[in-house]
Simulated assay, not measured.
Amino acid sequence: MFDIEKAKSRGLKPEQIEIMQKINENSLKRDNCKKHDFVDGSRFGKYRCKNCGCEEGVEFVLGYKQGLKHASEN
C-alpha cells in the first residue's frame, strides 16, 4: 500500500497521487474478496472480478486460477 500522506509531503503531482490512491483501492478490494470470479476488464489483458470489482492483469488471474485448481485437487 502506498502512503498517500507521505507522497503528498514529498511533493508528488496530483495525478501521481490519484494513481496511487486507485492502486490502494484496488488492492483493498482484491485482498478482501472471499472468492474472485474474473471476467474481461476495462482494457485488453485486464480482468475484473464480478464479486469485488478489483481489476488485475492476466498473470495474476492465471496464477489465481491455477491456485484454485491445485487446492481443489488436494
Rank of each mutant, 00 (worst) to 15 (best):
M1N: 11
M1Q: 12
M1Y: 08
F2A: 09
I4M: 05
E5W: 03
E5A: 11
E5Y: 09
K6H: 14
K6M: 09
K6S: 13
K8F: 06
K8H: 07
S9N: 14
R10G: 10
R10A: 10
G11L: 02
G11W: 02
G11E: 02
G11C: 01
L12S: 00
K13R: 14
K13C: 07
K13E: 12
Q16L: 07
Q16C: 04
Q16G: 08
I17A: 05
I17P: 00
I17K: 01
E18A: 14
E18W: 01
I19Q: 06
I19R: 11
M20I: 03
M20T: 03
M20K: 07
Q21E: 15
Q21P: 01
Q21T: 12
K22R: 14
K22D: 05
K22I: 02
I23G: 00
I23W: 01
I23C: 03
N24W: 02
N24T: 06
E25H: 06
N26R: 07
N26H: 05
L28F: 11
L28T: 13
K29A: 06
D31A: 14
D31Q: 15
D31F: 13
D31C: 13
N32I: 04
N32W: 02
N32P: 01
K34W: 01
K34T: 08
K34M: 06
K34Y: 06
K34D: 08
K35S: 13
K35N: 10
H36F: 06
H36L: 03
D37M: 10
D37F: 11
D37Y: 08
D37V: 10
F38R: 01
F38D: 00
V39N: 09
V39I: 12
V39D: 08
D40W: 05
D40N: 09
D40F: 05
D40K: 09
S42Y: 07
S42G: 05
S42F: 03
S42M: 03
S42W: 03
R43Q: 12
R43C: 09
F44H: 11
K46Y: 11
K46S: 08
Y47Q: 03
Y47R: 07
Y47E: 02
R48P: 00
R48I: 12
R48W: 03
C49Y: 00
K50M: 13
K50C: 06
N51Q: 12
N51S: 10
N51L: 07
C52W: 02
C52H: 05
C52I: 06
G53T: 04
G53A: 09
G53H: 07
G53Y: 10
G53E: 07
E55A: 02
E55W: 00
E56I: 04
E56R: 12
G57L: 04
G57I: 06
G57M: 04
G57Y: 05
G57F: 03
V58T: 13
V58S: 15
E59G: 13
F60E: 03
V61R: 07
L62N: 14
L62G: 05
Y64C: 05
Y64T: 05
K65E: 15
Q66F: 15
Q66W: 12
G67R: 11
L68S: 04
L68Q: 13
H70D: 15
H70S: 14
H70P: 00
H70E: 14
A71N: 14
A71L: 15
A71Q: 14
A71K: 15
S72V: 11
S72P: 04
S72N: 10
S72L: 15
S72C: 14
